[in-house]
Computed example of a mutant assay.
Amino acid sequence: MRVQTLLSPSVAGDEPIVRRSAQRLGHEVMVICVALVLLGGLVILGFVLWQTTLDEMQRPLRPGEVELRLDLAELLVALTALAVGAAICADIAARLVARRAVRPLADALERERRFIDDASHELRTPLAVLDARVQHLMALHPVGEAQRLILDELREDVRIMSAVIDDLIVTVTDSGSSAGTADLSAVLESTCLDLRCIATPNGVSIDLTPVANPMTVGLPAIELRRCLIALLDNAIEHSPTGGTVRVATQRRGSVVLITIADEGLGIVGIDPTRVFDRGAQGDRPGRVRPTGRGIGLALVRDVAKAYGGRIRVVDPGPGGTSFELRLPLIVGECGS
């Protein structure tokens, strides 16, 4: 079945997705229709065979009854022709139904692609302007000044934000994962340093246990940073004032375990296995800080899975929640 008439040129790359969906839906509808036809044919055949038993044939006719004589071979041919005709009709009907059913999918994909195109355009320009202004300020402050250090960090933040936008666009438009590796210690330290800007005003501290040996993980640094930001932000959000978020790593064979634990009330009002569902949120009595929309942990799960890792709840509380992020190591580039 051809579905390109449903798609605009801007979503031509999504045509295979829509076509596969339409074909799968059409096949399912056709199989159901054929199964119903065959079931009906078997019922009819069974009834006819029952009527041709010796007892039924020797039974005298009642008033108003009519006796019909059928040839079994001709009956089987007729039923076969009926089944084949019904299957062809079911296939045509299934294609028409599938064409109509995938139209909302095609429209949704078109809106998604249009949003990504608009977002990439609208966000890139302000970031480029911001980067230019930061560079202008950097030129006014020589290296070594306290202001220059802050400006260096600000420009790095702009670069990271641009990389995140690029990564999001690639994630939506492509089916595969980006290749790359990351220095675990460097990404951990820089991410914890950045998140302290959020934790400190809320009375929360971040305690990072230094990585004992150099380790390289099998995913790009920007993806690792996204996972760590989501986990740290979640831990800060659920930590009480004066609490501490603890980050530790442990190598176990060809994988590394990154544990992030808070001192909050634990997971309340939701099953711990469901906290990674998109949009899932638990209860938090006495919540004082604004919370997210339940997307961060789902993002961590998706990214970890895409690169051969996983995320799980180690301890749901009540003395705090601990998450364990398991990621593959590039053994040839790791320390012993």
Rank of each mutant, 00 (worst) to 15 (best):
R2L: 04
R2C: 01
L6E: 06
L7N: 04
S10V: 14
D14C: 07
E15G: 04
V31C: 06
V34A: 14
L36I: 13
L38C: 14
L39W: 10
G40E: 05
V43H: 06
V43E: 04
W50E: 07
W50M: 07
T52L: 12
T52C: 11
T53L: 10
P60Q: 01
P63L: 13
E65C: 08
E65Y: 06
D71W: 09
E74I: 15
E74T: 14
V77P: 00
A81N: 00
V84L: 14
G85A: 11
A90Y: 02
R95F: 00
R95H: 08
A101T: 08
R103K: 15
R103Y: 10
P104Q: 04
A106Q: 06
L109Y: 05
R111I: 06
E112Q: 11
R113L: 08
H121R: 13
T125I: 09
T125D: 06
L127P: 00
A128Q: 15
V129R: 14
V129P: 03
A132H: 10
Q135L: 12
M138W: 00
R148T: 00
I150R: 14
L151V: 03
E156F: 11
E156I: 10
E156W: 10
S162Y: 02
L168N: 08
V170R: 13
V170T: 11
S175G: 15
G176A: 09
G180Q: 08
L184A: 02
V187I: 11
V187G: 02
L188M: 12
R196Y: 03
C197N: 15
T200L: 09
N202Q: 15
V204I: 13
I206W: 03
D207F: 09
L208E: 11
P210E: 11
M215T: 05
T216K: 02
V217L: 04
P220T: 12
E223N: 08
R226M: 15
C227A: 11
L228E: 02
D233R: 13
T241E: 14
V245P: 03
A248C: 09
Q250L: 15
L257E: 13
D271Y: 00
V275D: 01
R278T: 07
G282M: 07
G286M: 10
R293L: 06
G294E: 06
I295P: 03
G296F: 01
L297G: 03
A298R: 01
A298Y: 05
V300D: 05
D302Q: 10
V303H: 05
A304Q: 05
K305Y: 09
G308E: 00
G317I: 14
P318W: 01
S322C: 04
E324A: 15
L325P: 00
R326H: 09
L327I: 08
L327H: 01
P328Y: 03
S336P: 12
S336T: 08
